[in-house]
Design a protein around this nucleic acid. Sequence first.
DNA 1: ATGCCTGCAAACCGTTTGCATCCAC
DNA 2: GTGGATGCAAACGGTTTGCAGGCAT
Lengths: 140, 140
Amino acid sequence: MSCQESFFRELRERGLRLTPQRELVLSVLHEMEGLAGAEEIYRRVQALSTAVDISTVYRTLDLLQEFGVVAVVDGADGQRRYELTAGRTPHVHLVCSRCGAVISADQAPVRGLADTLRAAYGFELDLKRISLSGLCPACR
Amino acid sequence: MSCQESFFRELRERGLRLTPQRELVLSVLHEMEGLAGAEEIYRRVQALSTAVDISTVYRTLDLLQEFGVVAVVDGADGQRRYELTAGRTPHVHLVCSRCGAVISADQAPVRGLADTLRAAYGFELDLKRISLSGLCPACR
DNA sequence: ATGCCTGCAAACCGTTTGCATCCAC
DNA sequence: GTGGATGCAAACGGTTTGCAGGCAT
């Protein structure tokens, strides 16, 4: 079942509607690799259809986050960035606090941490929303 | 050597000045436990002296961050939070994405992760700026 | 026909900035 | 006296919201 189809189904289950705008946002997310802010997603959507408002992009991204199909990362610059998770290799983001570069890292070592935190604090780590600040190899 | 003294010395080394406002912000940070946003720090400073502007608080917090005496956490709500690190047990923050509760967790398990990331990606994790999103025991 | 969605525009809010003045050195 | 620091107020930028109209169901 394609991603669009499961999206449609999830919408119907909640009594929500499949609109052209929502399809556009989802297809733009598909074409992207790596994280993108709402502004960039908006620009790419507009390239396909000019009559989409940025507030609709925000509302759709909220929806997709609720559905768990996008990962959300709150950048140190105050911008929120998004990335499709469905059908992709799970990974975490290493963000360089000096140059802003983003490295996609294997999720495995973080899963170990998640286990530890669950055992020690009863805290359920959200692997979809992890970004780690630090210095990339170039900036070290 | 007290924290105030080392702060003073660090300022002088850079040709900067020790002002009453900077002392106030630092003393408020001392009295706090846990994270606090600029707005709350501002309020506490005003309780001591009404004639301090919030822009000064922001400028001072930037300075303290540069000096490495405060830890900075970018919250999912878009607010930046601060906490004194000098003379305190190192820890990381577990932030509940539902209720906003913050748990202070031992840094040890994260240090293991830091070693792994350094070895695998050459990425130097900034332990002072780590906050992990997830669900607290109550919200699970 | 119903009520969910949209575009538009304005509000929001934490943070930053420009500038004249002030004061720590 | 000098140049960094402050207060004030305005700007900024990403995000949210209210509302009237539109369209998927």
